[in-house]
Nucleic acid binder design. Structure first.
Length: 624
DNA sequence: GTAGGGTTAG
C-alpha cells in the first residue's frame, strides 16, 4: 500500500495527458495501470479533486475507450459534489458516446446548462455510429431549432445519417446548409455528401460533388468509387479507378475492397488477381473485410479453388467470411461442400440470418432438397431464429425443385408475409421443369400482376405451354406481353480476355467483329444441329415467322459471347461467360451442345447461379 | 474536444 501511495503522490507528473511516447498503446495492462492510478489519486484527494484530476482521468478513459473507469470517474464527481464545467461535461458526453453508452451520454448532455456545438456533435455522432440514424437526425433538427449552426464535424456526421435513414430530402437540405456555411468543399463534408448522393441512387450528383472538391484524398476517392460499385456501375467504377490511380491516388484496404466489388460484378478475374497480388506484395496488414472481398471476387469470377485458398489462409474469420464461401459453393451447385462448410462453421462461429439464407439457397442449387428442409427446421427449433421472407423464399424454391408444387403453394399460404415476385418467379421455373401447366398458369397470373415488366416471366410461361404443344397459348402469351407493353431489359453478356471485357448485346448490330461472329455462329449452328440440337422457338415472343425466330435466337447475347470466345482461344481454354439476366432455355441447350461438339468447357454465370457445361451436360442439372 | 469511404443473402 505504501509503495502505491508513493508512486501516486509523485507530484502531479502522473498527469494522464497522452501516454508517454515510448509506451505501447496496445498494452491494456499499462493503460489500465494509468487509469487505476488516476482514479486512485482522485479517491485519495476525495473532495479535493480538481478539474485537472477529472480531466486527466477522462482523457485516459477516452483514449482507452474505457466505459467502466469513465463511469467511476463520473461517480466520483457526483459523490464529491463537483459541478463540472461546460468543457468537462462535454468531455464526459464524448466519453459516453464513444463508448456507445448513449443513455449515459444523453444523461450528461441533457443536464448540461449550456451546450456547445462540440457537445451536440459528439452525441449526434454517437447515435450515427450506432446506426441510430433517426435519433441522430432528431437531435440535429433540435439543434438547428435552438439556433446553433453546425460546423464541418456536424455536417460530415449528419450526412451519413441522412443516407443511413434514406432521407434524401433532408440530405439536400443539409447540403444547402453546407453551401451557406461554406463547408461544401470541405474534404470530410464533401466525401460524406457525395456518399450520401451515391447511396441514394444519385450517382451524377455524387460525381458533381466529387469533381468540385478542391482536394481529394483516399477517402473521397474511395467513396465515389464505391458509389459506382454499389450501384452496379462496375465498368464505370473500374474506369474511374484506373484514371485516379494514374493521377496518383492513394489506396488502402477500403479502396481495394470497393474495387473488388466492381471486379466481382464484372467477373474480371485478371484484374482481381492483380489486386490480390498488389495487396500481397505490399504486405498490407491483415484485414478480414478485404479478405472477405477477395473470397467473393474469386468465387464470383468462377475460381472457387482460389477463393478457398484465401479462406484457408486467413488467421481469423468473421461470419461474413464463412457466409461468402458458402454462397460461393452454393452458386456453383456444390451442395455437399455447402453442408460440409456449414458444419465446420458451427464449431467456430455463430451462424446468422445470412448464413441460413446461403445454406438454404445452396441446398436448392445443389439439389439437396430434404437436407435444406431439415436445416430450415433446425434454424427455427435449435437456433431459435425467426425466419425472414428470404428464408421462406428459399423453402419455396426447395419444394418447387422437388416438384412438390402444391406443397409450395400451401407453404406460401401459411407464410406471415405477402409472397414476393422472386418467390412466384422461382415457382414458375419449377412449373416449367416439372411441366405443371395448371400450377404454372396460377403462378404466372400472380407473378404478372406484381411484376408485369419482366419479359423473362412471359418467356418461361411460353416455354411451359410449348412443352405441352399448346401453341395457341404460346401465341396468347405473346399477345399478353404486347398488351402490357413490356419493356425488356436488354440482354447483355460478356467475356474477359486478356483484361479486355468483350460485351455483347442481344442482336448486336454494332460489334466491330460482327461479320466474323455471324459466319462463325452459322458454322456452330450447323454443327450442333447435326448433333441433334433443336431450337426452342417458344423463347421468342415476337410475332414473326419461324425462320425469323431462329435468327433472333441466334442473336442472344450469350451465344454471341460463346462464339467470340471459341474464335479467339485454344481448345483447352475454359470459356467464362457472364450474363446480366437469367439464361434462356434455348441458350442453355446451345451451350450444352457446344460443350459436347467443340469439346469445350463453358462456365456461364447468369443472374441466378453458375452453369458449368461439360460434354453436353450442365452442373445445374437443368434446374434453374 | 466533435468528422467522411468497406465485405456476405434475395
Amino acid at each position: 500500500m505504501k509503495k502505491i501511495t508513493k508512486t501516486f503522490l509523485r507530484p502531479i507528473r502522473y498527469s494522464l495527458g497522452p501516454l508517454p511516447p515510448n509506451s505501447n498503446p496496445k498494452s491494456p495492462r499499462l493503460l489500465n495501470g494509468h487509469l487505476d492510478s488516476a482514479l486512485l489519486h482522485m479517491a485519495l484527494r476525495g473532495a479535493e479533486a480538481k478539474f485537472h484530476d477529472y480531466d486527466a482521468a477522462i482523457t485516459a478513459c477516452v483514449e482507452r475507450r474505457s466505459l467502466r473507469y469513465g463511469q467511476r470517474a463520473h461517480a466520483h464527481m457526483i459523490k464529491a459534489r463537483y459541478r463540472p464545467s461546460a468543457y468537462l461535461a462535454t468531455r464526459l458526453a464524448i466519453l459516453y458516446a464513444k463508448c456507445r453508452d448513449m443513455g449515459g451520454a444523453r444523461n450528461v448532455f441533457d443536464e448540461m446548462p449550456e451546450r456547445s456545438i462540440v457537445a451536440w456533435t459528439a452525441v449526434i455522432s454517437g447515435y450515427a455510429q450506432m446506426g441510430s440514424h433517426g435519433e441522430a437526425l432528431e437531435l440535429f433538427v433540435r439543434m438547428l431549432a435552438t439556433g446553433i449552426l453546425p460546423n464541418e464535424f456536424t455536417l460530415a456526421t449528419i450526412l451519413t445519417s441522412c443516407s443511413g435513414a434514406c432521407k434524401l430530402d433532408l440530405g439536400r437540405q443539409v447540403h444547402s446548409i453546407a453551401i451557406k456555411t461554406n463547408f461544401e468543399s470541405h474534404i470530410f463534408v464533401g466525401s460524406s455528401l457525395l456518399d450520401m448522393y451515391a447511396k441514394s441512387n444519385n450517382i451524377l450528383e455524387a460525381r458533381k460533388v466529387f469533381d468540385f472538391l478542391p482536394e481529394r484524398d483516399v477517402v473521397s476517392c474511395t467513396a465515389i468509387l464505391s458509389g459506382y460499385a454499389q450501384l452496379g456501375l462496375d465498368e464505370e467504377a473500374l474506369q474511374l479507378f484506373i484514371e485516379l490511380y494514374k493521377e496518383g491516388m492513394h489506396c488502402n484496404y477500403v479502396t481495394f475492397t470497393s474495387l473488388l466489388t466492381a471486379l466481382s460484378g464484372l467477373s474480371a478475374l485478371d484484374y482481381g488477381k492483380q489486386v490480390h497480388s498488389f495487396t500481397y506484395r505490399h504486405e498490407l496488414p491483415f484485414y478480414v473485410v478485404l479478405e472477405n472481398s477477395l473470397i467473393d471476387m474469386y468465387s464470383k469470377c468462377g475460381s472457387l479453388t482460389y477463393a478457398r485458398r484465401v479462406f484457408n489462409k486467413m488467421p481469423e474469420r468473421s461470419s461474413v467470411s464463412w457466409n461468402t464461401m458458402i454462397v460461393g459453393y452454393g452458386k456453383h451447385g456444390l451442395g455437399d461442400e455447402v453442408i460440409q462448410l456449414f458444419n465446420l462453421m458451427l464449431r467456430e462461429v455463430k451462424p446468422d440470418r445470412v448464413t441460413f439464407m446461403a445454406v438454404l439457397s445452396g441446398c436448392s442449387h445443389g439439389g439437396l432438397v430434404d437436407e435444406g428442409l431439415s436445416i430450415f427446421d433446425y434454424m427455427i427449433k435449435e437456433k431459435g431464429l425467426k425466419p425472414e421472407i428470404g428464408h421462406y423464399g428459399c423453402v419455396v424454391d426447395l419444394l418447387g425443385r422437388a416438384g412438390r408444387i402444391e406443397k409450395a403453394l400451401d407453404f406460401i399460404k401459411s407464410m406471415p408475409f405477402e409472397p414476393t415476385a422472386a418467390m412466384w418467379g422461382s415457382l414458375l421455373g419449377a412449373c416449367r421443369v416439372h411441366i405443371n401447366i395448371p400450377a404454372g398458369e396460377f403462378v404466372a397470373k400472380r407473378l404478372l400482376d406484381i411484376e408485369p415488366e419482366n419479359a423473362g416471366n412471359y418467356v418461361i410461361l411460353s416455354n411451359i405451354y410449348a412443352s405441352a404443344s399448346r401453341w395457341q397459348d404460346v401465341v396468347d402469351v405473346r399477345k399478353l406481353m404486347m398488351e402490357k407493353a413490356v419493356i425488356k431489359e436488354p440482354g447483355r453478356s460478356w467475356i474477359n480476355l486478356d483484361k479486355v471485357i468483350h460485351t455483347f448485346y442481344s442482336s448486336d448490330r454494332f460489334h466491330p467483329k460482327k461479320g466474323e461472329i455471324e459466319a462463325k455462329i452459322k458454322e456452330i449452328y450447323a454443327k450442333i444441329k447435326e448433333a441433334g440440337f433443336v431450337p426452342d422457338l417458344s423463347c421468342v415472343l415476337h410475332d414473326v415467322d419461324d425462320e425469323q425466330k431462329e435468327r433472333m435466337l441466334l442473336g442472344h447475347s450469350e451465344k454471341l459471347a460463346i462464339t467470340f470466345g471459341l474464335m479467339g482461344t485454344p481448345r483447352s481454354f475454359m470459356l467464362r461467360i457472364t450474363k446480366n439476366l437469367r439464361v434462356c432455355v434455348d441458350c442453355h441447350n446451345f451451350a450444352k451442345f457446344v460443350s459436347m461438339v467443340y469439346e469445350r468447357e463453358i462456365s456461364l454465370r447468369d443472374s441466378n447461379r453458375f452453369h458449368l457445361f461439360v460434354k453436353g451436360a450442365c452442373s445445374c442439372g437443368d434446374y434453374w
